[in-house]
Amino acid sequence: MQGVVKVNSALNMRSGPGSNYGVIGTLRNNDKVEIIKEVDGWYEIRFNGKVGYASKSYITIVN
């Protein structure tokens, strides 16, 4: 499943599904990501070869 990031500035990509996990990357508005699965309001995603987590509130699913 594919998604597009929708933010005003930047979205942190984290090592786990929560804001208490470390930041491993930064996503920008309109970045395209691969959604692997949903975990407690977060998406596990793949972006630029990295796998991490981002809040699903800021990612819109596209077909």
Rank of each mutant, 00 (worst) to 15 (best):
I36G: 04
K32C: 05
Y53K: 00
E44H: 07
K6E: 10
I59M: 04
W42H: 04
G52P: 00
Y43I: 04
P17W: 01
D40L: 08
W42R: 01
G49N: 12
K6G: 08
N8M: 11
K56S: 10
E34L: 06
R28H: 13
M13I: 10
V4W: 04
Y21S: 04
Q2T: 11
G3I: 03
V39C: 04
A54I: 10
S9A: 14
R14L: 15
G41L: 08
S15K: 09
F47P: 01
I35R: 00
D40E: 11
A54W: 00
S9K: 09
D31K: 03
G49D: 15
N48H: 13
G3C: 03
V62D: 14
T60C: 06
E34D: 11
G41H: 07
N48F: 13
I61P: 11
M1Y: 12
L11S: 06
P17V: 03
K6M: 07
V62W: 08
M13S: 02
D31M: 06
N48L: 11
K50S: 12
V33K: 00
W42I: 01
Y21D: 03
K32I: 14
N63L: 10
R46P: 06
V7D: 05
Y58I: 04
S55F: 10
G49L: 08
N12V: 12
G52Q: 01
T60Q: 13
Y53T: 00
E34V: 05
N20F: 11
Q2V: 14
N12M: 09
W42K: 01
N20R: 10
M13D: 00
K56P: 05
K50F: 12
G41A: 11
S15L: 11
R28C: 05
Y53G: 00
W42N: 02
K32M: 14
N8T: 14
R14T: 09
S57C: 07
V5D: 01
K6Q: 15
Y58Q: 09
R14W: 13
G41C: 06
V23W: 05
K6I: 12
N63R: 04
E44T: 04
D40S: 10
Y43V: 05
V51M: 11
G25F: 08
N48A: 10
N20I: 11
G18F: 02
A54H: 01
I45W: 00
I35L: 06
V7S: 15
K50P: 02
G25R: 06
D40N: 13
R46H: 14
L27F: 03
N8P: 11
V39A: 07
G52C: 03
M13T: 03
K6F: 05
T26I: 15
Y58A: 13
F47D: 03
G16D: 02
N12H: 15
G41N: 08
F47K: 06
I36M: 09
F47S: 08
Q2P: 09
G18D: 06
I35Y: 03
R14H: 14
N29T: 09
I24L: 10
N20C: 06
N12Q: 10
K32S: 12
N8S: 11
K56V: 11
R14N: 07
K56R: 09
N20Q: 12
L11I: 11
Q2Y: 12
N12R: 10
K6D: 07
Y58D: 12
I24W: 02
I35G: 01
N8G: 15
K6P: 02
G16K: 03
L11P: 04
T60F: 14
V51I: 12
G41D: 12
T26E: 15
S55A: 13
M1N: 12
N48D: 12
M1P: 08
G18P: 00
S19P: 14
R14P: 01
G52A: 09
P17N: 02
N8E: 14
I36L: 12
I36Y: 07
A54D: 00
G22P: 12
E44R: 04
I24R: 03
Y21L: 02
F47I: 12
E44D: 03
G25W: 07
S9V: 10
N63Q: 14
T26H: 15
T60L: 14
N48K: 13
V5Y: 00
A10K: 07
G41W: 06
G3D: 02
K50E: 12
K6T: 14
V51H: 13
N12L: 12
N29Y: 09
K37I: 08
R46D: 15
S19Y: 12
W42Q: 02
M13A: 06
N30S: 10
A10N: 11
D31C: 04
